[in-house]
């Protein structure tokens, strides 16, 4: 009985160990969810490797990584978090690079609420303005910088609602519970145009640039799929996908 059980266990474990060698687990900042899904599908098709992606706020993912989460690659929403991981010795040396530069949009699901210069922020045509938590999400931090740059931060603070990631901020606006919100352009942008609602594409000079860096984490040293994915991200096909979601490269 004990023997059969052992054999059974071995049978279950062995093939999966082989599969694991070609599987890459990647932690992805929430704003990059949609492009990552497209890129992962293309990558799997082109290379045969499997991608397992987890999405969350950059702060959340950082905390998971420092507590031993099994990720091979980390696509952050900023450059400081990967740099921090690098200085802590948690990454493969020299693997850090900027895979995209993010853009911020003031977006509403209502077709005519947001104008092309963001003047709606000075109006009382909304009760709630959704942002991502500025403490943990770089897009949330950028949103507060934009409001501060326009001298509106103090006046808007009572109307702010915070999502724990840019994904939740988007969901507050999409469900109409917040009339508008600062989201990542990539969440509302497809093939070079706004997919629905109305938006102000926030000029990049109103906030610190959102350089989004990627790193290979040190546990992935022996995983060829991790390097393959990072190479793929730098490649032509991925660049095209990334641009189509409104990112700069």
């Amino acid at each position: 009985m004990r023997h059969t059980l052992k054999t059974l266990l071995l049978c279950l474990l062995l093939p999966s160990a082989q599969v694991l060698a070609e599987e890459v687990q990647v932690a992805v900042a929430a704003n990059f969810t949609a492009p990552m899904q497209v890129i992962a599908a293309a990558f799997e098709q082109d290379t045969g490797h499997q991608v397992k992606a987890s999405f969350g706020s950059t702060g959340q993912l950082y905390a998971q990584i420092t507590h031993g989460a099994p990720f091979d690659v980390f696509l952050a929403a900023d450059d400081s978090t990967p740099a921090k991981l690098e200085s802590e010795g948690a990454t493969l040396g020299g693997s850090r690079f900027t895979y995209a530069t993010g853009a911020l949009a003031l977006w509403s699901a209502q077709p005519d609420l947001v104008d092309h210069s963001g003047a709606v922020l000075r109006s009382d045509r909304f009760q709630h303005l959704a942002i991502a938590n500025p403490k943990t999400a770089p897009y949330g931090m950028a949103a507060t910088q934009v409001m501060a740059a326009q001298g509106l931060l103090e006046q808007l603070t009572p109307r702010l609602v915070e999502g724990q990631s840019i994904g939740q901020a988007y969901q507050f606006v999409a469900s109409g519970n917040a009339e508008l919100g600062f989201v990542a352009l990539s969440q509302v942008y497809r093939d070079g145009q706004l997919s629905n609602g109305s938006a102000w594409l926030v000029p990049a000079e109103l906030h610190d640039p959102i350089h989004q860096d990627a790193v290979i984490l040190s546990k992935a040293a022996a995983n060829p799929a991790a390097t393959a994915l990072v190479d793929y991200l730098r490649g032509e096909r991925a660049a095209k996908i990334i641009r189509s979601f409104g990112y700069q490269l």
Partner: peptide, 20 residues
């Protein structure tokens, strides 16, 4: 929506601290 004095209860505040 994590609003101070409105909806930011202790459990959410703990989550905020951990995340930060």
């Amino acid at each position: 929506g994590n609003i101070p004095d409105q909806t930011r209860v202790v459990s959410v505040q703990i989550f905020n601290h951990v995340e930060a």
